[in-house]
């Protein structure tokens, strides 16, 4: 299992890919710094910050794109090169093949995204810089962002790792899911939020720090439903991945 993990990590951690991910993750931090530097405290609008920077940019944009690129490539390289059979034929339990394949994109993408969200929150929450924010007790907000982003990372990783195993066009289907289902249809049909990883992430964010993220009130589902949903999605798609590995034809 350690070998599979090591191999997958080296596949995912290509120089260009890492550079792009770091660039994307640096974006919210840079913008938060810019906003807090130019606006005086009275002018800074917390709501705007939460809506645009955390929701639209990080949670609806960078988080799913980064995780999609990483997780669909987790099995993607083997599927593309037709070397999946070598992996499947190893004397390992299928779940021990699926687990490192799920962990690898989380290990690569998780820390980067969580750090990005936490630092951006700390910077954006105040015009006076990181230290004072922590003293003022905004550590709660940062903790909420970190937890919510991590939940999103894990759930997206499970779904897209499975998709990468099922089809070579996983990225296309993933994009349609993220931008049409989670992005568009959710705005018309509220119930869809119960089946949307983005909505789970937002609800966890709101649930953990209602004072900082109160502006999300109208758009989130119940906190327990979001936590449960994220766990169920992760477990179900992990089991689907294992099932697929068990049932696939080895050429």
């Amino acid at each position: 299992m350690a070998t599979v993990l090591r191999l997958t990590l080296s596949q995912l951690g290509g120089r260009w890919r890492l550079a792009l991910i770091l660039l994307l993750a640096a974006l919210p931090i840079g913008l938060a710094a810019l906003v807090s530097a130019t606006l005086s405290e009275a002018e800074s609008s917390n709501e705007e910050f939460v809506n645009t920077l955390l929701d639209t940019l990080l949670i609806a944009g960078i988080l799913p794109i980064v995780m999609m690129v990483l997780a669909t490539a987790s099995f993607g390289n083997e599927v593309e090169d037709k070397t999946l059979s070598y992996l499947v034929l190893r004397p390992l339990r299928r779940s021990l093949i699926a687990l490192p394949k799920l962990l690898a994109p989380i290990i690569v993408g998780g820390p980067v995204l969580v750090v990005s969200g936490v630092v951006a929150t700390l910077l954006g929450g105040s015009s006076l810089g990181v230290v004072i924010v922590v003293l003022h007790g905004d550590g709660q907000a940062a903790l909420a962002v970190g937890t919510a982003v991590l939940a999103g990372v894990v759930a997206y990783a499970a779904v897209f790792t499975w998709a990468g195993l099922m089809t070579t066009r996983a990225l296309a289907f993933g994009l349609m899911y993220v931008f049409i289902w989670e992005g568009l249809i959710t705005t018309f049909l509220g119930g869809v939020r119960y089946l949307s990883i983005r909505a789970y992430t937002l609800a966890i964010l709101h649930g953990m720090d209602k004072t900082s993220f109160g502006s999300l009130e109208d758009r989130v589902i119940e906190f327990p439903a979001a936590v449960g949903g994220a766990i169920i999605v992760t477990v179900v798609f992990f089991l689907l991945t294992v099932r697929r590995l068990r049932r696939m034809d080895v050429p």
């Binding site: 913008l31 906003v35 920077l53």
Partner: peptide, 17 residues
């Protein structure tokens, strides 16, 4: 596909902020 989507999707909130 990822680069194109990244460019279009990320540029919107950046410009917004």
């Amino acid at each position: 596909t990822s680069i194109i989507m990244g460019l279009f999707i990320i540029s919107l909130p950046v410009a917004g902020i």
